[in-house]
Nucleic acid binder design. Structure first.
Length: 728
RNA sequence: GGGCGCGUAGCUCAGUGGGAGAGCGCUCGCUUCACACGCGAGAGGUCGCAGGUUCGAAACCCGCCGCGCCCACCA
């Protein structure tokens, strides 16, 4: 018994001891209901963990420890989500490179020592992927060190990465199965597109940002005379206009409906039609449909069977179009070409400015532009608004499974229960199938090649698929069965699918990856379906939703019985922490300053699902609690008589009875995933115990008569053990 | 516009039908032999507002106000 008990050194001593003893290893001999499996969120490996990670992972850890103490064999792996755009962007900045798939592989490539200020160095795709792997290995080491400092009781022998062979094989196998069953399909269709990353993105990855704009009145010219004025914030899309629409009940435009009008500047003939989704009281009540300005355009285009006139290129600039040719008819092809030549090659903003000048010169601007602020869709990791561009992409069927997904959401036990509403809202609001292909590099490739015909054309409908036992494959370096490497890209040869999967297309399989589906069937059988998916509420629409979808498509069952949803850590002003705001708190110094128990105390006091303000004061409180436990232990255990006596004194018996109630309450709280309530009960009863029970028994505890002190000694042993287990 | 959550002491929050509470902060006192990272005493609140249900409402119901998040719209 030390003279002055101290927290210093305890963490290093015990984490080493637990590692040595394999305390948190999963015992594969366990079976059935005995096993409690956790579908741990793999944190994105792109820089550093922040205090929000510490918060929610601590919540999960308390559940793991509780279940272990209840006699369950806990399967608690860790994963690293290292594939995807965040890593690519970090590698670009860190090494000053840019991936260019047309550059050949250089086996002797060395990255620059320091990223230069000049143009980034173009490197081949394999070299780029090597750099991504190199950097993520470093990051993952740092992440593991942090998790160990925090005392997470994960089994470090079960770690996976989303770019690793296991995850790639499982992702590809699942995708090919979906393809065989028709649940995955390839289609050339309007797709949400980020013009900076030049990749398709999914509905789930969009966010709104307020942007200033201007509403411009623009005059169209009905072929039978008169005028048709629309209002638009996107005049640069006038060459892509395919129709004008009015509401069916709108008297003002009744004489135009069913007739044609010519676009200003380009003289393209477009029909005037009706659609019930047009809002009469917005602008003039007349709206132009372009291919494509927004998702509403896509809906009108699809429902009214309109043609496509695509003016926007993948790089976000206006591209060459065959004005005057079929599909691009013009009343005055010469004038149309002259006007469009002023726009081609310009960015969206440049083109918008220029076309307004041209319209003004032509006298087709009506009134003054009205400044407006409107919410614009952005890719959540992007810097410019998403556009809608027609491209060939892979999709997973989602819309037709909506009702079954809602049902699964109702079978799932949500903690807290109201989080289910977010899931249902999202499913009900889906507007399209899930676009899973990305025109990027550091991800799981689509395991598909295409035949090339004698003319050198890639035949996307003539697919060459690998057998499952070859997976994972990289079609950009591997060769389909029956072909030679020399036939790549040649007439009569083959071409690999150039795309990689959306990172969620892999993350949606974390139960299968963690459980090693198809690789270690015995393990998988034991852990799947998992018991719990812990995660934060902001990714219900992405990770939780997509995992439920994949499990439904592959197994027709839920991937887990429970979902434990944690809140966010907000800054002291209750604002969301984000890199751009510069208010992110990194956790390592907190662990150094306050100690893991203190940080965990703060985290565990945040109620399930509730956002919590970052508050170091709570960590100080946690540290005091830890010190108090040491001191109370010193008092309780010093010079105790031998064990074995019985509880004879009423006060001692009352204490133990009271503790039984606390244990029951804490247990009930934990069973309902309410670790915060369990902590609050344990803590308040512990301070009561110190202030009243320990003070009350001092006289008897030091009584020279062993018959008097024996009952106290017994009660102290029991009560101290109970409190230590409650806090554990 | 729709959905969800929240609004209790200066701050952070607990409290789902009967006593308004905890920690921090503040005031006063105490080195008392587990602990000054402690102990004791105290000040501080029309429980967002307005109705209703009830013998009784911080809690249950209706409406409103404010804050946050998600979704939709965004011509």
């Amino acid at each position: 018994m030390p003279e002055r008990p101290t927290l210093e050194g305890l963490e290093a001593k015990w984490s080493a001891a637990w590692e040595e003893a394999g305390t948190y290893r999963f015992d594969r001999a366990a079976t059935g209901e005995q096993i409690y499996s956790i579908d741990t969120p793999p944190p994105t490996v792109s820089g550093s963990l922040h205090v929000g990670h510490v918060f929610s992972y601590t919540h999960t850890d308390t559940m793991a420890r509780f279940m272990r103490m209840r006699g369950r064999e806990v399967f608690y792996p860790m994963g690293w989500d290292d594939n995807g755009l965040p890593t690519e962007r970090r590698v670009q900045n860190h090494y000053g490179v840019r991936c260019d798939p047309s550059v050949p592989y250089d086996p002797d490539f060395r990255p620059p020592e320091e990223p230069s200020d000049r143009e980034p160095v173009s490197v081949s795709r394999p070299n780029f992927v090597d750099l991504c792997l190199r950097l993520t290995v470093q990051d993952e080491r740092a992440f593991e060190a942090l998790w160990r400092s925090l005392g997470l009781s994960v089994d470090w022998e079960m770690t996976y990465t989303t770019i690793g062979r296991l995850a790639q094989g499982i992702s590809q196998r699942s995708f090919l199965a979906l393809l065989r069953r028709g649940e995955a399909y390839q289609l050339e269709a309007p797709t949400l597109w980020d013009i900076d990353f030049q990749t398709a993105v999914a509905q789930a990855e969009l966010e709104d940002r307020e942007r200033p704009g201007a509403m411009n009145g623009v005059r169209f010219h009905p072929v039978e005379g008169g005028e048709a004025v629309i209002e638009t914030t996107r005049p640069e899309l006038i060459p892509a206009c395919v129709a004008l629409l009015a509401h069916p009940d709108d008297e003002r435009h009744r004489n135009l409906v069913g007739k044609d009008a010519l676009t200003p500047l380009f003289g393209t003939r477009v029909p005037v039609r009706t659609h019930p989704a047009v809002e009469k009281d917005k602008g003039t009540g007349l709206v132009m449909v372009c291919t494509f300005g927004d998702l509403t355009d896509v809906m009108w285009w699809r429902e009214l069977g309109l043609p496509v006139r695509s003016v926007l290129g993948a790089d976000g600039r206006l591209q060459e179009v065959p004005l005057g040719e079929p599909g691009w008819d013009s009343a005055d092809p010469g004038a149309a070409r002259a006007a469009y030549s002023e726009l081609v090659g310009l960015t969206i903003n440049q083109a918008r400015k220029r076309i307004l000048e041209l319209l003004a010169q032509a006298g087709d601007i009506v009134g003054e532009p009205q400044p407006v602020t409107r919410a614009v869709k952005f890719f959540e990791k992007g810097d410019r608004p998403v556009e809608i561009i027609t491209s060939r992409q892979w999709f997973i069927r989602t819309l037709e499974h909506r009702e079954r997904l809602i049902e699964r959401g109702r079978e799932l036990h949500w903690h807290p229960p109201y989080m289910r509403a977010r899931f249902e809202d999202w499913v009900n609001g889906l507007t399209g199938d899930w676009c899973v292909s990305r025109q990027r590099f550091f991800g799981v490739p689509f395991p598909i090649w295409y035949e090339i015909d004698q003319h050198g054309n890639v035949c996307h409908e003539r697919r060459l698929l690998p057998e499952d036992d070859r997976l994972p494959v990289d079609p950009s370096t591997d060769v389909p069965a029956g072909y030679e490497p020399s036939q790549r890209g040649q007439p009569g040869g083959f071409a690999g699918d150039p795309d990689v999967m959306d990172t969620w297309a892999t993350s949606s399989l974390t139960p299968q990856i963690a459980g090693q589906a198809g690789v270690d069937p015995e393990l998988y059988e034991k852990v799947f379906p998992f018991d719990v998916r812990p995660q934060a509420h902001d990714i219900i629409r992405t990770w939780l939703f997509s995992t439920v979808l994949r499990s439904e498509l592959d197994y027709r069952e839920l991937p887990w019985s429970d979902a434990a949803i944690s809140g966010w850590v907000l800054d002291p002003d209750r604002k969301k922490m984000s890199k751009s705001k510069g208010n992110v708190v990194t956790p390592m110094h907190l662990l150094d300053e306050h100690g893991a128990d203190a940080v965990r105390y703060w985290a565990a006091s945040g109620r399930p699902g509730t956002d919590t303000a970052f508050d170091p004061k709570q960590m100080k409180v946690g540290r005091k609690l830890a010190v108090k436990v040491l001191n109370a232990s010193k008092f309780a255990l010093a010079d105790l008589p031998p064990a074995g006596a019985s509880l004879t004194h009423a006060l001692d018996r009352a204490l133990i009875g009271r503790l039984a109630g606390v244990v029951a309450e804490a247990t009930d709280s934990f069973e309902d995933y309410d670790y915060a309530r369990a902590l609050e009960r344990a803590e308040s009863s512990f301070w009561w115990y110190c202030d009243y029970y320990l003070e009350l028994v001092k006289g008897r505890r030091y009584d020279p008569d062993p018959d008097v002190s024996a009952s106290v000694a017994r009660a102290l042993r029991i009560s101290l053990s109970v409190f230590q287990r409650l806090f554990a």
